[in-house]
Amino acid sequence: MPWNWKQDGWPHFTYDAAALEVLERRFLVSSGEMIGAVRHVGAGDRELLRIELITDEAVKTSEIEGEMLDRLSVQSSLRRQLGLDAEARAVRPQERGIAEMMIDVYESWNAPLDHDTFFRWHRMLMAGNTHIGTVGAYRTHDDAMQIVSGRHDRLVVHFEAPPSRDVPGQMDAFIAWFGRSAPDGTASLPALTRAGIGHLYFESIHPFEDGNGRIGRALVEKSLAQNLERPSLLALAYTIERNRKAYYEYLERNQRTLDITGWLVYFAETLIEAQRTTLARVSFFIEKARFYDCFRSQFNERQEKAVARMFRAGPEGFKGGLSAENYIAITRTSRATATRDLQDLTAKGAFLRTGERRHTRYTLNLTPFQNEGNGSA
């Protein structure tokens, strides 16, 4: 079967809209729940929540491509971009670049999509990059743009994109489609359908030498934000990264056909899962704020450091629970002091204890702060 862009009818995809109706409705209902949850975050904390969510997505979207970034450096760069106080720490060009791109996506969601948008994102994303020849413009090399795996002498070609000479015309058509499919366009599409088609369509053109995956996921955020009339801040990269194999398998399978119902159902379900993950992170942020309000000034410096480290682990928690050895490593204290500190945290109700002796583990006790009233922002 030839690649999708070589088939008659490209780029007119076909799909069963009825297969997506329930998913589209579920997404809109969950979007309402998200808006309601954010309203429970105090006005002063909303910027902090936004930074937390954008940081998570920036780090994960890079991790999918095999690039490991320092989370605190990305967060520091985001704070600077937003004009907030940031600690003085070294920030590598790629960390600054992904932060700039994520903020640009967030703040310009309602602006029309054009070539300059893509070029701007690419320049930001490729900051400090020296291994590609063209930055801030579409690829121009004569070599085939292929997605491959395996040893150099036994390569498996998963996809081959249109030749570079065709990219400007392909991107003209893509940008025109994106405008037509917008909520105020002449052929508007529901949120999940538009985001799913847009992502597959863009990745099939693969217009840049590098960065196509990260830009393609940024494009999903822009698409959803336009349909929802506000940034979605979905944990898409986090959700994809947890099952990267399925993501690439669906992409590869659907880059050989123009009937993409299977892809759209998969991607819609992925977006809904990302929505649930984001909602859980918003709830965790609220619980964290309530936790600190409850225990304000009750911890010593060592305990503060350990608690902060556990919160950085996110909703999934500190892997395996916190042990006395973990506490000693984090706080650089003695075993006797660690024992007293942990007993104190448990007695105060900040930690929950499970197990005995060397199997003793501690977790944050967030139960009292879950669904605690409705509050108002």
Rank of each mutant, 00 (worst) to 15 (best):
Y15A: 04
A17H: 06
A17S: 13
A18N: 01
A18M: 00
A18K: 02
A19Q: 10
A19C: 01
A19N: 00
L20H: 03
L20P: 00
E21T: 10
E21G: 06
E21S: 13
V22A: 11
V22Y: 07
V22N: 10
L23N: 00
E24V: 08
E24L: 05
R25W: 04
R25N: 15
R26E: 12
R26H: 12
F27C: 07
F27A: 13
L28S: 09
V29M: 12
V29W: 10
S30D: 12
S31M: 15
E33Q: 12
I35A: 10
I35E: 14
I35H: 10
I35R: 12
G36K: 15
A37Y: 05
V38P: 02
V38R: 13
V38G: 02
R39H: 09
R39V: 04
R39L: 10
H40A: 13
H40T: 12
V41H: 10
V41C: 10
G42Q: 14
G42E: 11
G44T: 07
D45N: 11
E47M: 13
E47F: 01
L48K: 09
L48M: 10
L48R: 12
L48S: 11
L49R: 06
L49H: 09
L49I: 09
L49Q: 09
I51T: 10
I51C: 06
E52P: 00
E52D: 12
E52R: 04
E52I: 00
E52L: 13
I54R: 01
I54M: 15
T55C: 08
T55G: 02
T55E: 04
E57M: 06
E57S: 06
V59A: 07
K60E: 11
K60N: 09
T61Q: 07
T61R: 08
T61M: 12
S62I: 04
E63Q: 12
I64S: 04
I64A: 03
E65M: 12
E65A: 11
E65P: 11
G66I: 07
E67G: 01
M68S: 15
M68F: 14
M68P: 04
D70Q: 15
R71Y: 09
R71Q: 15
L72R: 14
S73D: 08
S73W: 04
V74Y: 03
Q75Y: 03
S77K: 02
S77T: 02
S77R: 02
L78Y: 02
R79S: 11
R80C: 02
R80I: 01
Q81N: 14
L82H: 02
L82C: 08
L82P: 01
L82G: 05
G83F: 02
G83R: 07
L84S: 12
D85Y: 09
D85N: 11
A86L: 09
A86C: 10
A86V: 10
E87Y: 03
E87F: 04
E87D: 04
A88R: 02
R89D: 08
R89N: 07
A90D: 03
A90H: 07
V91P: 06
V91R: 04
P93A: 05
P93E: 03
Q94W: 00
R96V: 01
R96Q: 14
G97N: 06
I98W: 03
E100F: 00
E100R: 04
E100H: 03
M101A: 15
I103P: 00
I103S: 02
D104C: 13
V105S: 07
V105F: 09
Y106E: 14
Y106R: 11
E107S: 07
S108E: 11
S108A: 15
S108M: 03
